[in-house]
Write a protein that binds this DNA or RNA. Sequence first.
DNA 1: GATGAATGAGGATTCATTCAT
DNA 2: TATGAATGAATCCTCATTCAT
Lengths: 231, 231, 231, 231
Amino acid sequence: MSEADERPRRRQARGERRISQLLQAAASVFCKLGYTASSTNAIAREAGVSPGTLYQFFPNKEAIAVELGGQLVKQMEEAHGRVFTAENARLPLDQLIDAIADPFVEFNCANPAFLALIKGPDAPGRVTEEHDTLHATLLDGVSGLLALRQPSLSTVERTLIAEMSFAMFKAALDLIVQSEGEERTAYAGEMKGMLYRYLAPYVGTGPVTVDGTAAPVGAAGATSRALPTGS
Amino acid sequence: MSEADERPRRRQARGERRISQLLQAAASVFCKLGYTASSTNAIAREAGVSPGTLYQFFPNKEAIAVELGGQLVKQMEEAHGRVFTAENARLPLDQLIDAIADPFVEFNCANPAFLALIKGPDAPGRVTEEHDTLHATLLDGVSGLLALRQPSLSTVERTLIAEMSFAMFKAALDLIVQSEGEERTAYAGEMKGMLYRYLAPYVGTGPVTVDGTAAPVGAAGATSRALPTGS
Amino acid sequence: MSEADERPRRRQARGERRISQLLQAAASVFCKLGYTASSTNAIAREAGVSPGTLYQFFPNKEAIAVELGGQLVKQMEEAHGRVFTAENARLPLDQLIDAIADPFVEFNCANPAFLALIKGPDAPGRVTEEHDTLHATLLDGVSGLLALRQPSLSTVERTLIAEMSFAMFKAALDLIVQSEGEERTAYAGEMKGMLYRYLAPYVGTGPVTVDGTAAPVGAAGATSRALPTGS
Amino acid sequence: MSEADERPRRRQARGERRISQLLQAAASVFCKLGYTASSTNAIAREAGVSPGTLYQFFPNKEAIAVELGGQLVKQMEEAHGRVFTAENARLPLDQLIDAIADPFVEFNCANPAFLALIKGPDAPGRVTEEHDTLHATLLDGVSGLLALRQPSLSTVERTLIAEMSFAMFKAALDLIVQSEGEERTAYAGEMKGMLYRYLAPYVGTGPVTVDGTAAPVGAAGATSRALPTGS
DNA sequence: GATGAATGAGGATTCATTCAT
DNA sequence: TATGAATGAATCCTCATTCAT
């Protein structure tokens, strides 16, 4: 019984060690060279194994990225819990932003490969499955938050705002990850301020009240450029 | 004198035709494949010349990107004039943003290769000379504007805000260029709104008065997250 | 004794199951891809075992082919009995041809891998041991038949005729195996007619008489095997 | 004028030399290893050039085979003229067979790669474009001859006979090419005898008369082609 | 200038085979 | 015995770059 249980596991043990070895190597290489310029051979070399070994676990580069993305998402969840939750959605805007951004910032600084995957390859049309999935997942998270917080937004509006917010977030994250120390803190602060001021006119700044509407906002100057909030 | 003058000119005439041929081809290929995945052979093929010819004008791939960047900057200036001017700096913030963003949006939609170059390769550390130059140029533009508009900002603050603004701008531009029709217009609107609300606390919304200070702003809610404006 | 006897037997039992599993897989893969393009990994995969297991029973790809050839020969004998017999040799030519061709056709249609092995790899000089063995076996069969039927043929003549007959047979078998239904029947008929007319002048058409000479020629039966000439 | 003529040619000169060098190398490698087992690297090595050079002239292995096939067909035509002609079709059968077989035998002995291409890869379903084309061309030749010689044959009959004849022809050619000296001559004789006797009932042995019908059968000439039967 | 041939290292991927478990 | 991990050379093919013409 235990034998039937363990035997397969033991075999997988080496394999799984190799897999994480390879994923770690991939993370490192993706960070150093970017996705496009990373080669499977380079990853294998970094992992200290032969190219053939890599291909025993992954059918191609894309699959490595997919798996790495999945692992990182899982790791982030394990470390910081789910961030796109209904509870978070109902927080005052500044706290909501903290609740999303802080874990992301922390995790991406510790695992810069995550950002590399989120950003994807530098070619417009050449999006990869993995990047797509990741992008969709995160975008859905943002969009869901918006829906919970401000149900009056139309789908189009919501998508627009979510895409913008996510794009801004990624771009700022890039600056954050690439800097260090005080500079990094400063960038993180800027990112939050930016998101706060961008989103305030759409979703209000206060906590969401019982009836599901966000508290009224005082950002009068923005309205002329903002989408109608539907209120 | 006339000999030394004219022969080179003729040669340069042919040469420059070749060069723009090649640059146009490069623009097209960079857009299709991204910088990293673009090959010199592909560019030469697209330009209808032999690889050898390409290397008669450019010592390597990087140089093509550098030159292309330069040309595009020049073209944009020819089409839209200088945008980072003192006059613009003194406009009311919304007009200032229009004055910068509109030409960029228009030009990048017409020349999507520009954005590809601005974004650079997908590798964090692997920044290329060309991308660096372009980045520095544009960042200086933004930074200069900030300096003119709000001289009280410290260098550090100015750099921070400029980097953030530029990063946001690039990210939004990406969304804009990749969309079409109404969607594109909507993204452009969002970008402007976003920049407006982000910058207002730092540089004020009104026109700059004679004494070089921006008009006072009323964006109270933002201050807690914003850098001190130096006022 | 019982230990030394039975354990190996049990082991062999499992082993032989594995072996036929592998051989069946090999047959399938050889058919799909041809001998040259077939890989041991592919065979193992098809058999549902690991590559290591395959190499526990066969030292290399060649050995698989050899064994498969042997098994198929044995299977064909089990299904159709020996065909290269003295009795057959003495039959009237058309019946002799039937006696040889029918089992081969039937068996090869059911086990197309057999033909793949008979044909061998597509390289002229690269004949494999397995193909050689099979080739020699079958050629000996034909040659033996000729010797029995027409002892007056010199060795050289006999070899020549045997090689030719066998080559024709293989080529026709290929057409037969690759076709279906009526077409297959038609090809089989053509093959027999072809062999009949080719061999008749050498070995006579009638049954072999007691004194070992074939009956004089007078290829009456041939027409019945030919397509109507339309005249 | 001559300059404008020669310049492009001179450039191509090196290239065309390379191309025939490569084709020759390919012929040699295909013969040694068979089509399937031949690698582009091996061909390049044999030609004494780098792999990259090969790919400047041929996009892949298949293309090499196609080109080589084309060249060989052309060369055979140049050396022996067209063989599938109406005049040949009307000859007495033995002369017709001579007219077809002799050039083929001679050419294939001199250029054994031709046969390698005609035979194609050893995989049943994996037929290559080049082999297909070659096969179709030659089969059409045979079929055309049959149509001219015996118009009363139905399409189905004609195809059947053509396929059979061609298959037999290929198989015999293989024996011929692989043997030498007297043996080769003997095989060639056998092949002709075999074809003669196979085809006689379908297309008659005599010359085709004015009204388009073949002379009545009465295969007198056949015996002269057969080995002495030892009777 | 322009060409296109040439290179050889490097890209992804597969293969026959061996080894540790 | 059976597994699956491991290997490294070999597969096809591309790339940035150079060179002879």
